[in-house]
Amino acid sequence: MDVDEFELWEAEDAEEFSSSVAGDIGFIIDQALDARREAIIALPAEDFLLDAYARLAEGKRDWRHVMIVPTHDGIVAIDDPTSNVATLARIFMPKGARVLPLSAANDDYKRAAADADARLQALNWPFDLVVLTMDDDGGVIGLKQGPDIDEALTAADDRRCLGMLDDRGAEAISLSKRTITNARTLLLALSSPLQKAEAENAVEGDDGILARILADVAVPVDAHVVAAE
């Protein structure tokens, strides 16, 4: 991506961060509702974003036409309290939003991902927004270093999500790079100055996972971060 297309929003504190993230996402949802009377967005369910989501959920809009998908999830039942979809459902379903699970209990994470892909294929395309998070090892949402990462970043097929095994042995389902790079808008939510530095390096074109994703992104990207830990 063009470096000029990366816009950094540094918040002074956690409250300003939550407000900025909620405002940015709310603006995009409302534009989508205005344009097509529906919005399809993908959200990670990290703890540091939950206050922003609570603020977002308080916004006045017709949530019945908003579809929310977790960006990634573990291989657990959808009603498992640790699942990302359960976290998002607790916040947004009372407002009337639809929340679509990626995961389901399944012994085979690849098969679970294929089932999730079939559900995503039924949605209108592309996503209006995908919110990305990073971990301190350079992983982006569920796309983490491990035996599946190269295939995940190079696959040219139409899969909208993939089964991922990371180097720590954790299995997950994650939106595919193709889903991310085709989204109408992208937003990066960063939880630390370290992640901010990693994101800036990625924009400059290092060889990390985020850089390999952003290399094929054609839309502006907003990045939100708290200025100090």
Binding site: V3, D4, F6, E7, L8, W9, E10, E16, S18, S19, S20, A22, G23, D24, G26, F27, D30, R55, L56, G59, K60, E200, V203
Partner: peptide, 30 residues
Amino acid sequence: MTDQPEGRAGRGRILLAEDDDSMRAFLERA
């Protein structure tokens, strides 16, 4: 990379009316 200092005012004066607190704050900043 865009990380401009805020308050670079002077291009015009805008009155923003928006009742959503988060969106109002973010739009104001933008």
